[in-house]
């Protein structure tokens, strides 16, 4: 299963406006948002704004970069 990212601006009613749609085999599985400078130490991290199906996680993790986020999403999709 291969992941595909598509950048898209997002209206979060905050300065967090940069996001990536994450597709797996053409299906939307997650939306990642890059945290703005409003988030202090966590600025620049990628936040799981929404995950669908196996990628859904109420604890909404944050990742240091997109590679880390994709690895996590892939593990979820693989059932890990």
């Amino acid at each position: 299963m291969s992941l595909h990212l598509q950048p898209v601006p997002i209206a979060t009613d905050s300065n967090d406006a940069e996001s990536q749609l994450v597709f797996a085999d053409g299906f939307l599985v997650a939306m990642l948002v890059r945290l703005s400078d409003d988030h202090g130490d966590e600025a620049g991290m990628w936040f799981l704004e929404a995950g669908f199906g196996r990628v859904d996680d109420p604890s909404q993790p944050k990742f240091a970069d997109l590679d880390e986020a994709q690895e996590w999403i892939q593990r979820r999709l693989d059932g890990g």
């Binding site: 979060t12 009613d13 905050s14 409003d38 988030h39 966590e42 936040f47 604890s59 909404q60 944050k62």
Partner: peptide, 12 residues
């Protein structure tokens, strides 16, 4: 809520 959402809400 995630701390990200709390942060956004407080800012709003």
């Amino acid at each position: 809520l995630s701390n990200v959402h709390v942060n956004r809400v407080l800012k709003e």
